[in-house]
Design a protein around this nucleic acid. Sequence first.
DNA 1: ATCTTTCTGGAACGACCAGTCAAATAAAGA
DNA 2: TCTTTATTTGACTGGTCGTTCCAGAAAGAT
Lengths: 190, 190
Amino acid sequence: MARPKAFDRDAALAAATKTFATYGFEGTSTALLVKSMGIGRQSLYDTFGDKHALYLEALQHYCFDSVGQLAAALQSAGSPLARIEAALLGFAARIQDDTMCLGVGSICEFGRRDREVAAIGKSSATSLQNIFAATIQRGKDLGEIPPEIDPKDAARFINATFIGLKVMARGGATHDDLRATVQMALRCLG
Amino acid sequence: MARPKAFDRDAALAAATKTFATYGFEGTSTALLVKSMGIGRQSLYDTFGDKHALYLEALQHYCFDSVGQLAAALQSAGSPLARIEAALLGFAARIQDDTMCLGVGSICEFGRRDREVAAIGKSSATSLQNIFAATIQRGKDLGEIPPEIDPKDAARFINATFIGLKVMARGGATHDDLRATVQMALRCLG
DNA sequence: ATCTTTCTGGAACGACCAGTCAAATAAAGA
DNA sequence: TCTTTATTTGACTGGTCGTTCCAGAAAGAT
């Protein structure tokens, strides 16, 4: 073994994630990445491959983390409806410092052109909707949510509203606007 | 007066709009614009200024048209709820040929960094939500929508879901998925 | 038909892009 | 301490970016 890396790989990846989330893939130059990650150019290429590979890894990592955090928030004890409300609002609040949700950003920027990006997006959307569906099922079991609601449809709908919230937050919507929107969405489940 | 332009300005602008909607601002090169618009390089710069000015004009035009079309669809006679459903589905269906809604795309790509882009987005979102609110008010008057619904909140919520639908369509959601999602959203108003 | 004004198309510009190379540096093992 | 191996640093590459210049072509006005 020889000289170890002088930077924290995870921290560098997190910085890249934030930069990509703010400026998009095409809007982020390698010079900006090098600067925001605080590492040398060659270190970037040695450690992460190239710009596209770095983007994929950032996206993968971001989606995995986000779904995990939302799962934790949704699966904790308490009223399922209240959990959903808190999870959506908590997440949307993080957008407001001018960074987009990288998952939504990647879909908007690439659509289905980039197969790898699309696969990550599709897979994490499925995971997230499964978690929403489980929470909704729990709400049905508890009698909070009426039995005629199909958990899969409702989960997809909640995800759609969630995406809309993130875009609105990116556009500068106030926290009050977001909260009122979430409360309207939850009416459907009540 | 001298030689008239050999191309249709509106058609060229429409082509640019489609290209921007597909690849985003940063993802669209002037070479691609020249090709997709079917005009010469110099004609582009003489007629539209520069790439950014062309983007702004395309965005403005697109938002104006879209809001107008949605207004027409929403204000036509018939059940307000059915009008909303048809308007949302009709619009989302147009996304599927791998072009994004340019309005949503611009917010996702730029956030609030570009003041002019943000202003267009904000203004057309307000217009659209006013139209939704009027339609919802009409639904209340007709007794289709319960009186405790606040039209402004409901309109913002419908817009959020609408944005989510467009992103999902861009990501490859099926028409059935979109329809089920719209129907869930309309439950909130019923 | 000629003039004048505009449009057109191709070549060219400097700036910046993503990515590479090689010399210099630093840490671990002998 | 000396070798080995990896990381770092910064200069550098070919290519593409948005934009402009220029010469030629075309159509209304005279």
